[in-house]
């Protein structure tokens, strides 16, 4: 599917971000090897891909948890109580920004605006947006995700 798209493109480098997203979808994150694989697919130097991969928030160059929490770190969310929510998340998960829980379930990352300002403070977990958030709502969401994970994970 991906290779078809690449073949159909007159200028494969234009698909570089899509290719990296697809490769990330497959491997979970963009390891050096995955990045090289993506580079070969679009015929670009790995450095050029790394330039993009390290620039974009949603491309991960390190292993991430099953649920990647992107807490919005932007002006509107700041006004509506971003900081206590951040502290609550960190405390609840027992990790700092940029870290992954030891059980590999959650990764906490900041993101600069997800365009959900009308329902700020907001966060994005695995492409789903949540907001406006409160500490209680966050607890609820985390609990739901935990039980969802427990259900789908073979013991």
């Amino acid at each position: 599917m991906l290779s078809q798209q690449i073949q159909a493109s007159k200028h494969p480098p234009e698909l570089v971000v899509d290719v990296m997203m697809a490769v990330q979808e497959h491997y979970g994150y963009l390891s050096d090897e995955a990045l090289e694989e993506a580079a070969a697919m679009v015929g670009m130097a790995p450095t050029k891909l790394d330039e993009l991969a390290t620039f974009y928030t949603f491309l991960y160059r390190e292993p991430v948890g099953r649920y990647v929490i992107h807490l919005c770190d932007s002006v509107i969310c700041w006004m509506d109580g971003y900081e206590p929510l951040r502290d609550h998340l960190c405390k609840k998960l027992g990790i700092q920004m940029g870290e992954t829980t030891p059980d590999g379930l959650f990764t906490l990352l900041p993101v600069c605006c997800i365009g959900y300002c009308d329902r700020s403070p907001a966060m994005l977990i695995n492409k789903k947006a949540y907001g406006p958030l409160t500490s209680e709502k966050i607890d609820e969401i985390l609990e739901t995700l935990r039980s969802e994970a427990a259900e789908t994970t073979p013991s």
Binding site: L35, T47, D50, T54, F55
Partner: peptide, 16 residues
């Protein structure tokens, strides 16, 4: 083989 990585104050010039 030399590029610019990262964003903002973390900007890094180096190799893959």
């Amino acid at each position: 083989d030399l590029g610019v990585m990262q964003i903002g104050s973390r900007v890094y010039y180096g190799r893959f």
